[in-house]
């Protein structure tokens, strides 16, 4: 269960990037540069295809400021003979924005619970819960409908894995 050196390094890198990006956006704000697109609505619910939840997920996000957000994505996949449950809370920043188009950076921990079902009477299957970290970055188009396309890096006991995702969401006041 203990995180590997790679996952720790990835988590540190993700948090460092988040801090740098957050500082950059705060500096831009202090200079009076336009960063955010929409002052409201401030909530977002979305569906993920691939992405933080694995193959699919649902997420919720709240803008904490013009360029900072917090959210979480969840997924429950009942694959054949296997169940995968994941939770991915994250902090997000928007270092670049132009009109409805924005670039985002999300980072946070990830918990994944897997349960293997076995039909063999001599083996009941097994289950485990593992923790890791994820860093994702990509493009967002935000209006009433929100579209995202992004790449991500997941780190955990098993090392690093590249991944990708597409999100479609709805802004809510």
């Amino acid at each position: 269960m203990s995180p590997t050196r790679e996952s720790l390094l990835a988590a540190i890198a993700a948090l460092s990037l988040l801090t740098v990006a957050s500082s950059a956006s705060a500096a831009a704000e202090s200079r009076g540069e336009p960063l955010s697109v929409t002052a409201s609505p401030r909530h977002l619910v979305y569906l993920d295809l691939l992405g933080k939840g694995g193959v699919w997920g649902v997420g919720f996000e709240r803008l904490l400021g013009d360029a900072v957000a917090a959210g979480a994505a969840f997924s429950f996949t009942l694959a054949s003979s296997q169940t995968v449950l994941s939770a991915s809370p994250y902090l997000g920043v928007y270092p670049f924005a132009q009109g409805r188009h924005r670039w985002f950076l999300h980072a946070g921990p990830q918990a994944v619970h897997t349960r293997i079902r076995s039909a063999a009477p001599e083996w009941p299957g097994t289950s485990s819960t593992r923790f890791g970290a994820q860093l994702s970055t990509g493009y967002e188009r935000r209006g009433r409908l929100v579209f995202r396309a992004y790449g991500m890096l997941v780190a955990g006991d098993g090392g690093l894995a590249p991944w990708t995702g597409v999100s479609l969401g709805w802004s809510i006041r």
Partner: peptide
């Protein structure tokens, strides 16, 4: 090392985090 969704899509993310 994958969990397969619908026996078609490998959840590559599980490589790193899940015990797959």
């Amino acid at each position: 090392p994958f969990v397969w969704t619908a026996n078609t899509i490998p959840d590559a993310r599980t490589l790193a985090v899940a015990d797959s």
